[in-house]
Amino acid sequence: MAKVIVVTSGKGGVGKTTSAAAISTGLAMRGKKTVVIDFDVGLRNLDLIMGCERRVVYDLVNVIQGEAGLNQALIRDKRVENLFILPASQTRDKEALTQEGVKEVLEKLREEFDFIICDSPAGIERGAQLAMYFADEAVVVTNPEVSSVRDSDRILGLLASKTQRAEQASDPVREHLLITRYNPDRVTSGDMLTLEDIREILAIELLGLIPESEAVLRASNQGVPVIHESASDAGMAYLDTVSRLLGEDVPLRFHQASKKAC
């Protein structure tokens, strides 16, 4: 059965797109047929991080408006088999996304794919709500800062009330916490919330912890999802995250201060 997973956060710049790219790549590397959809209409970021920006011809909005078929818009990843990207439009305005249109696209994708990863825009408005509406599961991306935790808390409130699963009173959206840009040294110095603080406030299951890492910037400048850098700390942390998403029990790494790379 296909799973629709939204990567969301409320706050911008916390690592949603980085995580959506890494997780979808990781799932495909594990043999799962995966598509990652950019819901951030107007910004169009995902294709850059996936390194396929020059191959974008049609986008999600074209498909919804019937100007292109789904197969024309899907971009096949050039590094990993089983991985496809459905880009967002840079020019259209956000109103072009309709709930009915998104529903149709997801229904078609469900027939073909194991995982459908939705990269949400920031905020709690329409775009973010559309990205989460049809989700079966949610990866809530949180930085160890008060404002980010607060926004994630709001998003969790919306996941429990403003999704199809909530409205139809079926099984609730399964919520996963992904802490990104974690820096144990700054946590120790008191600048940041600790892992325990975040877990206690948000009170959902921890899917993974990604350290603050230069590898992320390096990778995204080259248009390579950081999970390909399997020797880097962030790459390893995303590999662990994907394993947990597939139900494996993997111990947590990179959460302790100053013992560089365990």
Binding site: D151, R154, L156, G157, L202, A203
Partner: peptide, 9 residues
């Protein structure tokens, strides 16, 4: 009420 009352709720 069982569960976390979240920001905005």
């Amino acid at each position: 009420y069982r569960g976390t009352v979240r920001s905005g709720q």
